[in-house]
Design a protein around this nucleic acid. Sequence first.
DNA 1: ATGCCGGCCAGAGGCCGA
Length: 257
Amino acid sequence: MRIASFNINGVKARLPRLIEWLEETRPAVACLQEIKSQDESFPAAEFEKIGYRAIWHGQKGFNGVAILADGVEPVEAQRTLPGDPEDLHARYIEADVNGVRIACIYLPNGNPQPGPKFDYKLAWMDRLRARMAELWAQEIPCAVVGDFNVIPEDKDVWSPAAMASDALMQPESRAAYRRLLADGWTDAIDTLNPRGGVWTFWDYQAGAWPRDHGFRIDHLLLSPELADRMTAAGVDKEYRGREKASDHAPVWVEIGD
DNA sequence: ATGCCGGCCAGAGGCCGA
């Protein structure tokens, strides 16, 4: 089965591109971030027309996440990240699909740093680690995927110097991400591309796409049960160059039977 | 560069992102 993640940057504005990608690559599970849609205006019927069932957690204007599954209804397990009842951002949803637990996350950006938004990011990462420890303890096949808004290492960015003051690559952000890996989770794309140089995001501004000025912030973290079955992982880079594209490209991992 | 681009809501232009 193919598990994919795509920060879509507006599900309504991107719908033709999204339908195109689903039909062309046909992932078993597609996790979306930044749907920028309220729950009542999520275009579920458009996905059902091409055989995908969905669950989603939206809000007005920004954020928002969804899980699409090919031919089956995702069984919702959680629609918020535990640990802070005052956090109302739509950034987390979790479901079972064909016996695999899927968590779809949109981790806070954290800019500008330092400041309250950066503090929120780091607190969110602590809460995520706690939730992932709960999932780990269940010993189920599990994938935690999405826009982590963390550039894990210098090899994951076109220019470490240009991004040095950005929240995405601060030592605290990286340390929090590294703790997830130290807990035993497998970064699918990094494992199969250990030399780096793989990007998942290119800014709309300053000619970042034509200059290939990108970085890797969309990640697929696998429990041991899935990591052992991983056969391939990659980035659908070409979609970043199409008309009305998101600023992210889809990422995916292939899991064998 | 406190911007650049672009979506959202709203119905102009500010908020948000990375």
